[in-house]
Each structure stands twice: as C-alpha cells, then as structure tokens.
C-alpha cells in the first residue's frame, strides 16, 4: 500500500509541505517495500483547478492514503471519489509523518478547508 504526502523538496527529512495543491512534489511511500519516490507536481503553477490536477497525480500514483496539513475542496472531492483515506499531518518531516501514521498517531482530516478564490 502506498502513501502520498505533499513535499517541497525531495529529501525525506524535509518538512511536509503546508499546501497540498501547490506543493512542488509528492512523496510516494510504499509501506510494504519501504521504498520512496518523488513525483513532480506539474500542477503547482497552473491557474485554476490546481488542486484537481494535483489530486489526480496522487490518484495515478496509486496511493491509498494521503497525509496532508490541509486540502482544498476540489482536491478533497477527487481523493474522496478515488476512496483515498486522508489523514491530517503533524508538524515535522515527511518521514516523521509516515512513522506517526504507522504508529496510528494521525487523525483523519475532518475539517476540510475550502479552497480560496
């Protein structure tokens, strides 16, 4: 099973990005093989609907879990229809958050921030 996290650098010890749709990369972590790869967010600079395209990228990476500090309404709708579980991240690095998830320390993201226009 794969986990997707928004990242601003390709270093697993860098802090998790504070913005899902506008993150520069997505870290895709494979829980079974413990392998990590980074996908470039081609939507980071696009005008409207960045969240949709970003979420599409994560859906295409076959992640089943997403860990993020926040999420726009559109991205939420995409991830939700793809039946991806969304967890709220804690302060810390990408890897810290993966560990917290594995330890069952993360909460499901309940309050969805509406995308601003």
């Amino acid at each position: 099973m794969k986990i997707g996290l928004p990242a601003n650098s390709t270093d697993v010890n860098s802090p998790i990005s504070d913005n899902f749709g506008r993150a520069l990369y997505y870290m895709i972590y494979d829980v079974e093989s413990e392998e990590t790869r980074f996908e470039k967010n081609t939507a980071a600079m696009s005008q409207g609907g960045a969240g949709i395209k970003a979420a599409q990228l994560v859906v295409d990476s076959e992640a089943k879990i997403v860990i993020t500090p926040q999420l726009g309404e559109n991205a939420f709708n995409v991830l939700n229809s793809a039946k991806i579980e969304i967890y709220k991240s804690e302060k810390g690095s990408l890897m810290d958050n993966v560990r917290l998830y594995k330890d069952g320390q993360l909460q499901l993201l309940a309050n969805i921030h509406k995308g601003r226009h």
């Binding site: 005008q47 409207g48 609907g49 949709i52 395209k53 599409q56 859906v59 995409v78 793809a82």
Partner: peptide, 11 residues
Amino acid sequence: FCAFNALAMIS
C-alpha cells in the same frame, strides 16, 4: 487538454 483542470480520471 483542459487548461482549467476541470476534468479528472477517477476509478
């Protein structure tokens, strides 16, 4: 194609 990212392929 969609410049506004209004389309997504889900499941």
